[in-house]
């Protein structure tokens, strides 16, 4: 297949277009501005809509409005901007509107920095805004995988009427790598609930307000049943050299690919090291951790330990779990090698 040499941000934008996304609302922020830039170049030429909102708050609400009409829509931002969007994301989840939100993470808290980070894991996987909901959160580790996951994310969002987040980091957004775009036939789910004008049908309503407590609970149960189904059916995880591994590294995204190099070097030295790489960080691949709970674990993240908590929960209290994290800085494979060797000694 023809390969194109692109940045991660461009690859994600193009993948969304290939998946049928024709409407994009966003606001510039480093290190993801190439996504809105790409969209502003491409979408108007194909009859689509690119609109630069006055803020991330407005952008996510434009997404709410556009998703409410049943269109395939996306926004992207980076950590501080995603924080601003949380109100809107909660409303989108509550109204059960399918859409895709890209977070190219940078260091926080506060304004933090513009270097890559994975410190929005809690926010991404535990809901983020107020109320009882979850996003489906996809965490690619290469640009090719970012293309596949982005392309699939729209189908997933439609299928479950649940927003999907692509969780990348600044490194992934800025780096370039060859990618190819497979031919894709989007699975368009019928959207009888969409607001398109009440012609030849009763009026539709996109809402999140349920003043009657029992009605609210009933609505939340529908959301929760969806989440349970997602947990059962949509887990994606990669295992790498885990069969004989005595030590298993758990990592996702860019850190996971760095860990793969560390594992190669360590295996050359005769150490039996493997990797579990959650591709969906929500739903989290608990089962594979349960199955391998007799091994020793090293969780590596670009944070001070967020996915760590999900790994610990999956493994139970008796398991041997160690942690190595950098925040604001990308860990190198040499550092991971040193950490693993410490465990062996």
């Amino acid at each position: 297949m023809e390969k194109t040499f692109m940045t991660g941000n461009e690859a994600i934008a193009e993948a969304a277009i290939q998946a049928g996304c024709r409407h994009f609302f966003g606001y510039p922020i480093t290190p993801q501005s190439e996504i809105p830039e790409y969209m502003s170049k491409r979408l108007p030429k194909m009859g689509g809509v690119y609109l630069q909102a006055e803020s991330e708050v407005a952008a996510i609400n434009m997404l709410f409005g556009a998703a409410g009409t049943g269109a395939r829509v996306m926004t992207s931002s980076s950590s501080p901007g995603i924080s601003l969007m949380q109100e809107g994301i909660s409303y989108i989840a509550a109204a059960r509107l399918p859409c895709v939100i890209v977070n190219i993470m940078r260091g926080g808290p506060g304004l933090g920095g513009i270097q890559p980070s994975q410190s929005d894991y809690f926010q991404a996987t535990k809901g983020g805004g107020h109320g009882d909901y979850h996003l489906i959160v996809l965490a690619p580790h290469t640009l090719q995988e970012a293309v596949y996951l982005t392309m699939n994310s729209f189908d997933l969002a439609d299928k479950y009427r649940n927003p999907v987040m692509i969780l990348g980091d600044g490194y992934m957004g800025q780096m370039m790598e060859p990618v190819s775009f497979p031919k894709l036939t989007p699975r368009h789910t019928p959207k009888g609930w969409a607001l398109t004008g009440a012609k030849d049908r009763p009026a539709n309503l996109v809402k999140t307000l349920y003043l009657d407590p029992e009605a609210l609970e009933k609505h939340n149960l529908v959301i929760n049943q969806t989440i349970q189904k997602i947990k059962k059916e949509e887990v994606q995880v990669e295992t790498y050299h885990t069969d004989d591994a005595e030590i298993i590294i758990a990592a996702y995204g860019t850190v996971a690919r760095i860990a793969k190099t560390a594992i190669e070097v360590l295996r050359n030295k005769g150490l039996k090291v493997g990797l579990i790489r959650p591709i969906t960080v929500f739903p989290f691949p608990c089962k594979i951790f349960e199955e391998l709970a007799d091994r020793r674990f090293l969780v590596v993240e670009m944070s001070f330990g967020q996915m760590l908590e999900d790994v610990q929960l999956s493994l139970g209290r008796k398991a041997s779990v160690h942690f190595y994290g950098r925040t604001g800085v990308v860990p190198s494979y040499d550092e991971i090698i040193v950490e693993v060797e410490k465990l062996v000694k």
Binding site: Y171, M175, E177, R257, T261, E264, P331, S332, Y333, D334
Partner: peptide, 9 residues
């Protein structure tokens, strides 16, 4: 396949 694109040395 390239694992780490991050090269310290």
């Amino acid at each position: 396949e390239i694992g780490s694109p991050v090269i310290t040395s």
